[in-house]
Write a protein that binds this DNA or RNA. Structure first.
Length: 435
DNA sequence: TTTTGAGTTGTTCGA
DNA sequence: GTCGAACAACTCAAA
């Protein structure tokens, strides 16, 4: 009989420190085999050059090295998740599987399938809260139902917060409990059909000065004043508990941004229908123009609106766009161009390194006006006023649109005042608002 | 049950 | 240039 072991299944928690499921696996009394699966069902749909896959690959290499220094290793698979698990069941005497919960609809369905496969062999899939501070059913209204408005949600969130919720898990105390073994070779990016040109990912910024000046700088795209933590939260390379502890100590404005993340994740978990269509059904009735040429110009940063074009070019070049500019380009797509917000959502999903389904969907529905606690339909960003307020010296614009101010720069694809009037008309019609 | 106050990120217009 | 009101009502959350 083979040695009875437990497995820690890494997914979006790619770190050894302060990791809830890993901590519990290491404390279980059995040796821990750490694994990761490159899921073909996800990877096969991605373009050949996807920086997020590069990021995961780089992170796994680092994890592997760290584990090897403990005499252990990381076993990385490439294939269909279910067949990988069937293989694991044949190879090992598994007593339990530990993992951290993922609240996206695809992940929930996948985990249900794997839980069934494991339970056929009387093996439990033990899942833990790690990705958020409070889960979808932990911050509720007095009537027991989930919140759909941010401000009261955040008040309740803060009232419930106790150091218990952000205390780090001292995972490192138990590192001696990793299984000693040598993993088979990790699949290379090319073997999985991806371009492997190296990429240097921007460092996250969470020094005391960045956090304490966050609310002063966050709206100025020319300043690198945002935290750049999105990518790390997405793949779990940084613990949310650690950052909440820090935010509480330094800057409550910054804490609010972390609460927004929990808020949208609980919206996704409680109202999964909103991931496909408008949260408020009336907005599904908007007669979008969906002009392909306009969409192409928006994607390429050739709308003739400098702030919009700068944002789109930053996104296309770096996989990042400043938060203030995300709102401007989103409002422009939905309201000036009258293009379905889901087109923009999909484009961001492809391009953003820090793409998180819940936040991306929440942000787009906010811009379109169709979501929870969204912008009212008549709130239409004026790209020129936004530039005056947030990039008055055109520093950000010039960085990304070098031909700005020359005859090379394209003409506006739509005229602001006309586009605004048309938008109000179309929205009023869908929402049945009379003049 | 009813009432009350409030709701991330804005713009335009007219005094 | 500056300031307040209108934009449009509705729904949410809590007292």
């Amino acid at each position: 009989m083979k040695e009875s072991i437990v497995i820690h299944w890494f997914r979006r928690d790619l770190r050894l420190q302060d990791n809830a499921a890993l901590y519990n696996a290491l404390k279980s009394g059995k040796k821990v085999l750490p694994i990761f699966i490159f899921d073909r069902q996800i990877l096969d749909k991605l373009p050949k050059r996807d920086l997020r896959v590069v990021f995961i690959h780089q992170t796994l290499l680092a994890l592997k090295e760290e584990l090897q220094s403990w005499g252990s290793d990381l076993q990385v698979f490439y294939g269909e998740t279910e067949s990988v698990w069937r293989e694991l069941l044949q190879q090992h005497n598994i007593s339990a599987v530990f993992t951290n919960r993922d609240y996206e609809p695809y992940a929930i369905a996948r985990d249900t399938r794997i839980r069934d496969i494991l339970s056929d062999k009387q093996i439990a899939l033990l899942d833990y809260k790690d990705h958020v501070i409070f889960e979808f059913n932990e911050v509720l209204k007095d009537d027991g139902k989930p919140y759909t408005v941010y401000t009261p949600y955040s008040k309740k969130w803060k009232a419930l917060l106790d150091p218990y919720y952000y205390k780090p898990y001292p995972t490192e105390t138990y590192f001696k409990n990793f299984l000693k073994f040598e993993a088979s070779k990790m699949p290379e990016l090319e073997e999985m059909g991806f371009d492997n040109t190296p990429f240097t990912f921007p460092a996250s910024q969470s020094s005391r000065s960045v956090i304490s000046n966050y609310h002063l700088n966050r709206d100025l795209p020319a300043i690198n004043g945002t935290s750049r933590l999105g990518l790390h939260f997405r793949f779990g390379t940084i613990s949310i508990r650690e950052k909440v502890g820090k935010a509480l100590a330094i800057n409550e404005k910054y804490l609010n941004e972390l609460i927004w993340r929990d808020f949208y994740i609980q919206i996704m978990a409680n109202f999964p229908h909103a991931m496909k269509g408008a949260f408020k059904p009336a907005y599904d009735g908007i007669e979008w123009q969906n002009n392909e040429a306009h969409f192409k110009a928006w994607c390429e940063g050739k709308t003739g609106y400098p702030i919009v074009d700068a944002g789109m070019r930053e996104l296309n070049t770096t996989g990042f766009m400043h938060n203030r500019v995300r709102m401007i380009v989103a409002s422009f797509l939905c309201k000036h161009l009258l293009i379905d917000w889901r087109w923009g959502e999909t484009y961001f999903a492809e391009k953003l390194l820090d793409f998180e389904l819940a936040s991306n969907n929440g942000g787009w529905q906010w811009a379109a006006g169709s979501g929870v606690d969204a912008a009212p339909y008549f709130r239409i960003f004026n790209p020129y006023l936004q530039t005056e307020k947030f990039d008055s010296k055109f520093e950000y614009i010039k960085r990304w649109v070098p031909e700005f101010g020359t005859s090379q720069y394209p003409k506006e694809i739509v005229e602001h005042t006309k586009a605004r009037e048309l938008c109000l008309e179309v929205y009023k019609r869908a929402l049945k608002i009379s003049d």
